[in-house]
Simulated scan of single mutants.
Amino acid sequence: MTKPLSVQLYSVRDQLAADRDNVLRRIAGIGYGAVEPFDPTADPKGFRKVADDLGLAVSSTHAYALLSQEPAEVFDAIATVGTDLVIIPGGIAHEEFTTRDGLSRTADLLNGLAEQASAYGMRIGYHNHWWEIEPRIDGRHALEALADLLAPEVFLEIDTYWAAVGGADVPALLRGLSSRILALHVKDGPVVKDEPHVAVGQGVMPVPEILAASPDTWRIVELDSCAGDIFDALAGSHTYLTQLSGS
């Protein structure tokens, strides 16, 4: 079964805080079939009911909360939200990705969380920004070196845009890490750190080549910031990606 296009809800964080149900309704109305929460502990039962009513799957969830809250409570919330893919999207000091010792500590953290997650039938993943890509360890991106230290069940969600900002050849990175990758953040823009993002297909990212390099993963649209109307950008992204896939 083809995975539906998903949206990382951080894209609409301000709108979500004002009117969650309407935001989810608008996302479903655009045609997205899934969403990726960034805080699964925020009213998980209410969220699940609205998502179910709208026919929205939960592709995965980010879970910063695992780094600061009681893990059992977070995993229980995630179970209610309805996904088994749990992603750490940062919260680890950037400096840890500049040395082998730092990578070992990071791997120990992620592997320990993965062991706890397995009791809930869940898997732990890690989501990159640029700071896991820019540093080189023995000529390889730090994220690639980290992957060698992770337990087999730990997966990666590659943010393709931040990988490009960090200097990666993104299709090559995806091919090299293919056995680890279960999800992609698909986004577009000028590939400049502090510039706003644009609808997928309207920037300089080689989106067709990126998707071809990782054909079976979740595609999750995200705009960290947007100069125009965010819902217009989400709609434009959906149109472009749907036409690209021929579906």
Rank of each mutant, 00 (worst) to 15 (best):
W130A: 12
W130D: 12
W130H: 14
W131P: 00
W131V: 08
E132A: 04
E132R: 04
E132T: 13
I133R: 09
I133A: 09
E134F: 10
E134W: 06
P135V: 12
P135D: 06
R136H: 14
I137E: 08
I137P: 15
D138F: 12
G139E: 14
G139F: 14
G139Q: 11
L143Y: 03
L143G: 07
L143Q: 09
L143F: 05
L143T: 10
E144H: 04
A147E: 06
A147P: 10
A147M: 07
D148K: 15
D148W: 05
L149M: 15
L149F: 13
L149D: 07
A151C: 08
A151T: 11
V154A: 14
V154L: 09
F155A: 09
L156F: 09
L156S: 08
L156T: 09
E157F: 11
E157K: 09
E157M: 15
E157W: 04
I158T: 03
I158L: 03
D159G: 11
D159L: 13
T160G: 05
T160H: 05
T160Y: 04
Y161D: 13
W162T: 12
W162Q: 13
W162I: 11
A163K: 07
A163N: 06
A164R: 15
A164N: 12
A164M: 14
G166W: 10
G166M: 14
G166A: 14
G166C: 11
A168V: 06
D169S: 13
D169T: 07
V170G: 02
V170W: 08
P171G: 09
P171M: 14
P171H: 10
A172L: 09
A172S: 14
A172Y: 04
L173R: 12
L174C: 08
G176R: 13
G176I: 01
G176A: 15
L177T: 07
S178V: 07
S178L: 11
S178H: 13
S179F: 13
S179V: 04
R180G: 03
R180A: 06
I181W: 02
L182N: 13
A183T: 07
A183F: 02
L184N: 04
H185V: 03
H185P: 03
V186T: 10
V186F: 00
K187V: 02
K187D: 02
K187S: 11
K187R: 15
D188V: 08
D188R: 02
G189E: 06
G189Y: 06
P190K: 03
V191I: 14
V192P: 02
V192Y: 01
K193I: 10
K193L: 07
K193V: 11
K193W: 08
D194Q: 04
E195M: 06
E195D: 06
H197C: 00
V198E: 02
V200N: 05
G201Y: 00
Q202T: 13
Q202E: 14
G203W: 06
G203R: 01
V204W: 07
M205I: 03
M205C: 02
V207F: 00
V207D: 01
P208D: 00
E209T: 01
I210Q: 03
L211H: 00
L211P: 04
A213S: 08
A213L: 12
D216L: 01
D216A: 02
D216N: 12
R219P: 01
R219I: 05
R219E: 06
I220W: 00
E222M: 07
E222D: 12
E222H: 09
L223E: 08
L223C: 10
L223Y: 02
D224W: 04
